[in-house]
């Protein structure tokens, strides 16, 4: 479903801030794969997701989604294939638009937007049903401005928007990191439900190793802009946090497991 071939990305080349964020990253996802991604700060996790989403162009390498070469495609065009949820709850929704308007925008992802009405009556009923899946009571607040919602509610809504029109690939960039533990657990639960229902191919970045082990059918660890550990199936199920920490330390020569990872 997703094929990343040897992609390279260097930020601020030729300056003191030069940083090679992706160095020859290669990854292939099969249809229905739910892959969790872990790695330290600066390992290139978010950079990988942004490269797939087309936020900027990669320096070298190719990206295929469902067999289509999207390497040169602009961000808004690639969006037709993708569902995205971001770390910052503010990023994924339009704050001064209504809940139902946000959903209507998401439903038209990948379609030409013309002078037809922006949101139809039938749609509204559909949204009401879909919002019930989130179990947050949002179905009764369809015309509320999204800015009035809490971070957790906004993330859950973004998740629904990302999957409203079944994406070829769902990209979750630490989408629970900014939430309190209880809300984070709820959003993760909703994630599992939604991904499971439509059998979505998913890439989920997390800094929580326990979550990375529990969720999904495959786990990859990144370091220095490439994948250093790739495990799936039964082997992944048997993983312990201690095993991952050991891997981290092995990869980085000891300094890898930072505070944030130890605490979670």
């Amino acid at each position: 479903m997703l094929k990343i071939e040897e992609i390279w990305k260097t930020f601020n080349p030729g300056t003191v801030n030069e940083k090679t964020a992706l160095s020859g990253l290669t990854l292939e996802l099969k249809e229905g794969d739910f892959v969790t991604v872990i790695g330290g700060n600066g390992a290139g996790k978010s950079t990988m997701l942004n490269a797939v989403a087309g936020v900027w162009k990669v320096d070298e390498g190719k990206i295929f989604i469902d067999g289509v070469n999207v390497t040169g495609l602009a961000e808004h065009k690639r969006a037709a294939y993708l569902g995205r949820v971001f770390q910052d709850p503010m990023t994924g929704t339009a704050a001064n638009m209504q809940i139902q308007e946000n959903l209507a925008l998401a439903l038209r992802r990948g379609k030409l937007r013309g002078l037809r009405i922006g949101i139809t009556r039938e749609e509204r009923e559909e949204y009401q049903e879909k919002l019930k899946i989130l179990e947050l009571g949002l179905e009764d607040r369809m015309t509320s401005k999204v800015g009035l919602l809490s971070g957790g509610q906004r993330q859950a809504l973004t998740l629904l928007m990302a999957t409203l029109k079944k994406p070829k690939l769902l990209l979750l960039d630490e989408h629970t990191a900014a939430l309190d533990p209880k809300t984070a657990a709820k959003v993760l639960e909703a994630t599992d439900r939604i991904v499971g229902k439509d059998n979505l191919t998913t890439l989920m970045i997390t800094h929580n190793m326990k979550d990375a082990i529990i969720h999904g059918n495959r786990l990859i660890m990144m370091h220095g802009g490439r994948i250093i550990y790739d495990v799936s199936g039964d082997e992944k199920k048997k993983l312990k946090v201690a095993d991952l920490l050991a891997k981290f330390e092995q990869a980085s020569g000891g300094e890898f497991a930072n505070d944030r990872m130890m605490l979670t």
């Binding site: 001064n96 308007e101 992802r109």
Partner: peptide, 28 residues
Amino acid sequence: WFFGTELGCSIRATGSNPHMSRAQGINT
């Protein structure tokens, strides 16, 4: 009328959150 159409809504979304708009396939 115009800002209630699909195109009008995407213009409003662009002003509200360009990042989100691009992620939803809007040519900001």
